[in-house]
């Protein structure tokens, strides 16, 4: 086989490989075009919010250390009583670069709650251990509830 033919084959093989990489990257990084209201509605309907109170930006800053003004939208429900561990946070990011900060804030909050209940709140600890953090390209959800899987499913369907 001539050098030219080998170079041609290698070139096309590389182009095909590149196309596969780009398509996979584009598919994997897809952002949701679902509006925040739609997403919030879907998530809200998937769980019982009665043991929780709705939180504002001040509460978001206090519990998670992040400023809601820097995001496209957020919905926060926090435990209504000091013995509650039910919690729900939905955030829509302005920029995918915010993903890691949001994930870290959610993990820190969960760890803080776990350490608060550790040793005496068996049910609360179990609930927090089963909690779900799901961070997509432009949406993230943290849910600690009786059935976090239902919230995650609703979140993924709406995404």
């Amino acid at each position: 086989m001539s050098e030219l033919r080998i170079a041609g084959i290698a070139k096309w093989a590389l182009i095909i490989l590149l196309a596969v990489i780009l398509v996979m990257q584009a598919a994997g990084n897809r952002s949701s075009s679902t509006s925040f209201e739609e997403m919030a509605g879907a998530v809200r309907q998937s769980t019982d919010l009665s043991p929780m109170s709705e939180g504002d930006n001040q509460m978001l800053k206090r519990l998670y250390g992040i400023d809601g003004a820097e995001y496209d939208g957020f919905m926060l429900y926090y435990p209504a009583s000091s013995m509650g561990a039910e919690e729900l946070l939905l955030i829509r990011m302005k920029d995918p670069a915010q993903k890691e900060a949001v994930r870290k804030a959610m993990e820190t909050r969960r760890d803080t709650q776990l350490s608060n209940f550790e040793g005496y709140g068996v049910e609360q600890t179990a609930m927090l251990e089963n909690s779900v953090i799901d961070v997509k390209n432009n949406y993230a959800v943290f849910v600690s509830a009786q059935d976090p899987a239902a919230v995650q499913e609703a979140f993924r369907k709406a995404y």
Binding site: Q25, S31, A97
Partner: peptide
Amino acid sequence: RREPAASGIA
């Protein structure tokens, strides 16, 4: 006139 969506491609 659609809501812009970020591709998330770094």
